[in-house]
């Protein structure tokens, strides 16, 4: 888990205009404090069990899930970015979308690779677009936010599969219609949730007059994913 450590910057801000004249020979001793540790550094991950490491990372991922579900204007998702959560969500979504069509070849359901590529290619395009429009966010921060904001759509996919499973084989038209309307409602809600959450996190880093230009590709991206989820049908 990488951390963007920005707290050190002000300390060295004044050093940029220090100049050393050429007459002074460069000499002296550089002492590296090997044994002097401050209490913060004593925490070492070298000799802890693997289980602890994995659990700690999973906990960090879970915390970010909560952040997506309650999108307050916090910067936790931006500060310590990671790509584990997006990978998990992306793989889950792709596997669920793949699901029914494994055996039948001519089914219209998207393949695993297709979903995977759409998600990563889409977020890279959105990120590049926001950089080109003058955004002040780093590449991976943006990827992290966009990836985590798929969470509502993954939940919607889960609900849709449950709804499809609950629908009996020989359902009459009215039943199917109700199921479809329910799915539309679920997908629409999660789509707007995803767009709202990612906009809440990303909008601050954009120039104020161009927010609409940045939001449009995000909207398109989640719309395509939401539409794939809506049109998903298990092959009989």
């Amino acid at each position: 888990m990488a951390e963007v450590d920005e707290s050190n910057k002000p300390l060295f801000a004044g050093l940029s205009d220090v100049s050393i004249s050429e007459d002074i020979p460069v000499e002296g001793e550089i002492s590296v404090p090997v044994n002097s540790q401050n209490p913060d550094d004593e925490f070492s991950t070298l000799d802890e069990p693997v289980k602890d490491t994995i659990l700690r990372d999973l906990r960090a991922v879970g915390k970010k899930f909560v952040h997506v579900m309650y999108p307050k204007k916090s910067s936790a998702l931006l500060r310590d970015w990671d790509l584990w959560g997006p990978l998990l969500l992306c793989v889950t979504l792709a596997l669920m979308l793949q699901g029914g069509s494994a055996d039948s070849k001519d089914d219209g359901n998207p393949q695993f690779a297709e979903v995977f590529v759409i998600i990563w290619f889409g977020s890279i395009v959105i990120t590049l677009n926001s950089k080109l429009l003058g955004g002040t966010i780093s590449f991976f921060q943006s990827l992290c936010v966009l990836g985590y904001c798929i969470l509502p759509l993954t939940v919607a996919m889960l609900l849709c599969r449950l709804l499809l499973m609950m629908t009996p084989e020989k359902a009459n038209n009215a039943f199917e219609l109700i199921g479809f309307i329910l799915r539309v409602v679920v997908v629409t809600a999660s789509f707007s949730w995803s767009t709202y959450a990612s906009t809440a996190f990303l909008a601050d880093s954009q120039p104020a007059n161009r927010k609409a230009l940045v939001v449009y590709p995000i909207f398109l991206f989640y719309f395509v994913i939401g539409w794939m989820i809506l049109t998903f049908a298990t092959s009989s």
Binding site: E114, I118, P217, L220, T231
Partner: peptide
């Protein structure tokens, strides 16, 4: 232009999907 091209990609995906287009050796995307 870039955004219009991407929009058109999305619309084409929609069209392919609803028309049941099957493309061998390739993806709709």
């Amino acid at each position: 232009p870039m955004m219009l091209v991407f929009t058109m990609v999305a619309i084409l995906l929609h069209g392919m999907k609803t028309s049941g287009t099957v493309i061998r050796e390739g993806t709709l995307m």
